[in-house]
């Protein structure tokens, strides 16, 4: 049954070479697209000792240790692979040249000499959750997480309100200069902020917003994409609905907030998804505006830690996983809406 499911071809009933190629490509795609993320997720549960192991193992293993009577520190356990003690599991006391001085944990009095080539470290499956807990204890993770959440949420709310107000004006009023304003807004699509970095920095600096989240939030809330997306959608809302409300002496603000916004919900949902994605992943602009580490977003903190040689990979990998987790969950839940929204609007 599984086979008939997989081998469904274009109705011709035979599994030909293009089908083989198709499935080969798709499976390669899964490995190539998910594999790296999975590998990082797996690695993030390894201890520092296991991370420095080469060649690396896929699952997180940690060397087994044991407390032996008469020794203060736990001793690493080894399996003996050759020689007279073959098959036994012994604890290593110390290494002397090419020999290892070992001891049987059950019989701590007797010391045994084994060639180092004759033993292999005994390992056990162990998830190093401390990689994650130490992020909260030592790395100030919550601070960066909160900064990212604050910027993402506040910027998205402002973006949606400002853009929908402008879209409402452009879609539902006839006034002199309407076309000019619309074209002007669309024209800014051609001017990515990357070519105005220096003067935008001056404006942010003059407003006293350097090293505040607002310096990241304000410059990018008036997205031409959002205005365009919402305007096109609002054009489809019939004017009669608005006029009926005006008959009841509703203010224009009430018409906008109580009638147009709820009706534009599908388009607004798309804009929210985009805005959250843009803001959570934003890098270059925060890198310029936020220079004090307590203002860093998650992305900046990750970048700063990876440049810092003091940082171990174990913490960095755990932080990477925590940073990609929210987006991954949102994607798993909203995959259809996201892909449909992007395919329709052609923006990212």
């Amino acid at each position: 049954m599984v086979w008939s499911f997989i081998s469904r071809t274009r109705g011709r009933g035979r599994f030909d070479v293009t089908d083989w190629l198709t499935w080969g490509y798709l499976i390669l795609g899964i490995v190539l697209m998910f594999g790296p993320v999975l590998w990082v997720a797996m690695s993030s549960f390894k201890t520092d000792a296991a991370l420095s192991e080469y060649p690396p193992s896929f699952l997180p293993f940690a060397p087994k240790t044991v407390m032996v009577e008469g020794y203060d520190d736990p001793l690493p356990l080894y399996e003996i692979t050759a020689g007279e003690h073959r098959g036994e599991v012994l604890a290593q006391i110390r290494r002397i040249g090419l020999n290892a001085q070992m001891v049987d944990p059950q019989n701590p009095a007797e010391k045994i000499n084994v060639k180092i080539g004759d033993r292999a470290p005994a390992r056990e499956f162990a998830m190093a959750f401390e990689n994650y807990s130490k992020l909260f204890e030592r790395f100030n993770f919550m601070r960066y997480f909160w900064n990212s959440v604050f910027i993402t949420v506040v910027a998205t709310i402002i973006t949606v309100i400002f853009n929908s107000m402008a879209a409402f004006a452009l879609a539902k009023y006839r006034f002199r200069g309407r076309t000019t304003v619309f074209l002007l807004i669309i024209a800014t699509l051609m001017i990515p902020p990357t070519i105005n970095l220096v003067p935008i920095y001056l404006v942010v600096n003059e407003l006293g917003l350097v090293n505040t989240p607002w310096g990241v939030i304000w410059p990018a809330v008036a997205t031409p994409t959002g205005v365009f997306l919402l305007r096109q959608y609002m054009l489809t809302i019939p004017d009669d609905l608005l006029d009926a409300a005006r008959m009841d002496h509703a203010s224009e603000w009430r018409v906008y907030w109580r009638i147009v916004l709820p009706l534009a919900a599908p388009a607004i949902a798309v804009l929210i998804i985009f805005s959250v994605m843009w803001r959570w992943n934003e890098f270059l602009w925060p890198l310029i505006v936020l220079t004090r580490s307590e203002e860093f977003t998650l992305q900046l903190a990750l970048n700063a830690f990876q440049g810092d040689l003091q940082t171990s990979w174990s913490g960095l990998l755990a932080m990477t996983v925590l940073t990609l987790l929210p987006i991954t969950i949102v994607f798993a839940l909203l995959q259809k809406n996201i892909t449909a929204g992007i395919a329709q609007s052609g923006v990212k």
Binding site: M33, F34, V37, M277, W280, N281, F283, Q299, L302, N303, T320, T323, L324, I327, T328, V330, F331, Q335, I338, T339, K348
Partner: peptide
């Protein structure tokens, strides 16, 4: 499509 959503730093 999944990698498109990941942040550049990640």
């Amino acid at each position: 499509f999944y990698p498109v959503l990941l942040s550049p730093v990640v």
